[in-house]
Nucleic acid binder design. Structure first.
Ligand SMILES: [Zn+2]
Ligand SMILES: [Zn+2]
Ligand SMILES: [Zn+2]
Ligand SMILES: [Zn+2]
Lengths: 174, 174
DNA sequence: TACAATTTTGTTATGATATAACAAGTAAAA
DNA sequence: TTTTACTTGTTATATCATAACAAAATTGTA
């Protein structure tokens, strides 16, 4: 499998605003996945591996049924449980994130580091950028703890207008 | 309509950790809703008003179809558009919030002040507490702006264990 | 009032997202 | 090899949400 396209990637803290070859991302993500699964005695089966790859190949978060359609095209079973099982596995392995406000799934470039997925979601182009912000994480933990609340998971999804789309709309108004 | 029950409320910044009469909350929320709608030339019709009331009467975020069932019991139309229209109205009027990670709806006690809804969601009892944190809001805006991203909406949903449930589980283990 | 314009609601159908339940197959462990 | 655990296949269904168009109610205007 070759990954031909190059684009601006969505992982701010690893290669912020740099154009790069997305193939490398996919390959790295897949290698990381193999390693992590091996380490944890988890089985990255064909359908799970291909699901992860397809999610990475999409430049935007992918819906479960979109993914299911792609898998079906390739001869995998086309019933919903197939894709939801794969997604569940990838989610619990930390290899992907779910963007709750979009009901869609996104590859994580930092699966090897336990972390919360924080997202910037563009209303216009629907690109999603994952960002990492320890300050906010710490502040949230502290804030929650102050109320006696023990934090387990965080859904931080910020929507608005990305830099590119803001430029475009500014150009259109000029 | 009488509101009989008393419980710990979910609006941290208005009456943090205080036991109080929820009836008052509902009444206040409804009054605020009437006022806001009047000011903005919006019509708080019977079904919209009753939907808001039912959402407030629930101690947890209410799903659209749960709400629909309650409305249907009272003689309102029982087709989905009825409830989604009411929800859309209440959402855009800022009278309720949607909890994305639960697909459920929650009354807002601060409808008169424009704000983002930040939530602490207990995994155990499913109570949801709205909290207000200007520091985090400011930090998020700044963080996004730093990437050229113009923030429009925020989904901040923190899940974990609330103080009460933490106590309970500690007691069980003792 | 009568009329038109606007908004709201009724109704039917369908789309989109996700899970339950149980059978069959496959891989790992004993 | 036999057992066990895990994974996948299959059918059905649950849950969440919207499209499209008709009917009714409300509001503004003459
Ligand atoms: Zn991540
Ligand atoms: Zn954009
Ligand atoms: Zn609020
Ligand atoms: Zn709790």
């Amino acid at each position: 499998m070759k990954h031909e396209d190059s684009h601006q990637h969505s992982q701010q803290d690893s290669h912020q605003h740099s154009h790069h070859n997305h193939n490398d991302c996919i390959d790295t993500a897949l290698e990381t996945a193999e390693t992590l699964c091996a380490e944890q005695g988890q089985r990255l089966t064909k359908v799970r591996r291909r699901a992860l790859e397809l999610i990475w190949e999409s430049h935007r978060p992918l819906g479960a049924y979109q993914l299911l359609a792609k898998l079906a095209e390739e001869g995998f079973n086309s019933a919903p449980p197939t894709v939801y099982r794969a997604l569940d596995f990838l989610l619990s392995a930390g290899l992907i994130h779910k963007v709750e406000s979009m009901n869609a799934y996104l590859g994580c470039a930092h699966a090897d580091k336990a972390h919360k997925g924080y997202f910037l979601i563009c209303d216009e182009c629907h690109n999603v950028m994952e960002f990492d912000y320890q300050d906010i994480h710490a502040a949230l933990i502290e804030k929650a703890a102050h109320q006696g609340f023990e934090l387990r998971a965080e859904t931080i999804e910020l929507t608005g207008l990305c830099a590119k789309c803001k430029e475009k709309s500014a150009g259109a108004n000029a």
